[in-house]
């Protein structure tokens, strides 16, 4: 395998972006080089954070979950069969760990108090402690963007949230997180972006 990790035409093929860098990090790690993995931790932590938080895990616990996913990742690196699927591995693990954390907390809550928010309609996306309509965005354009974003179907919100947090994630990773068919991801992403842009077009001055 070509070892020039920085090259655009290296062993991971033509794909670039986060998925390719995740794959390269696994290959390098197996090779005893940890630099690319450290870069990946820096780059992909915000994505994993969002995956975990979007499952309704509290902030403190989400930090532990994300750290645990990274640990599991290096422990599994020697046995991840397809380095190419490393990003997918990460988001699947993050989502599972988040589910477990939520299930655990609900179990605790059930034993100690009555359940709140059972079946809250936006539980999938809403941070439990910070409703998105109260987002304090630095500028008015971003607040408008957020309001329009919230008008999108939930599936669109999930996909765009993911695409926004990751530099060119692969479709397999998105499909895993959203439960979509891989073949539907590209089309959905395009349609959702078009929808959001159409909504923004009704706003004055968003895209100055």
């Amino acid at each position: 395998m070509n070892r020039t990790a920085g090259s655009t035409a290296d062993g991971v093929g033509e794909r670039t972006g986060l998925a390719a860098r995740a794959a390269a990090a696994v290959v390098a790690f197996r090779d005893g080089r940890t630099g690319p993995l450290e870069d990946l931790v820096r780059e992909a932590t915000p994505l994993l954070w969002n995956v975990v938080r979007s499952q309704g895990v509290e902030r403190d616990e989400a930090a532990d979950v994300v750290q645990g996913v990274w640990l599991a990742f290096v422990r599994s690196a020697p046995t991840i069969r397809e380095a190419d699927a490393a990003l997918k591995w990460l988001v699947v693990s993050a989502r599972r760990a988040a589910w477990q954390a939520v299930a655990h907390r609900r179990g605790d809550a059930r034993r100690t108090t009555t359940l709140e928010d059972e079946g809250a309609p936006y539980g999938q996306l809403r941070s439990p402690d910070r409703p998105p309509d109260e987002v304090v965005a630095a500028d008015e354009r971003d607040r408008r963007l957020w309001r329009r974003f919230l008008l999108l179907p939930e599936r669109c919100q999930q996909v765009l949230r993911f695409v926004a947090m990751a530099d060119r994630p692969d479709y397999r990773a998105i499909a895993e997180v959203t439960g979509m068919q891989v073949t539907a991801v590209g089309v959905t992403r395009g349609r959702c972006l078009a929808k959001l842009r159409a909504l923004l077009a009704t706003e004055e001055g968003w895209d100055a």
């Binding site: 938080r53 750290q67 990274w70 290096v74 971003d142 963007l145 957020w146 974003f149 765009l160 926004a164």
Partner: peptide, 27 residues
């Protein structure tokens, strides 16, 4: 649009400052 979305998501629910360093330390 995606960059704007990322800004908003970062503002709404910022990744804890020390999470990357903590993770790297654990690794």
């Amino acid at each position: 649009v995606l960059a704007g979305l990322r800004r908003v998501l970062d503002a709404a629910d910022p990744v804890p400052d020390d999470l990357v360093e903590r993770s790297l330390f654990a690794l």
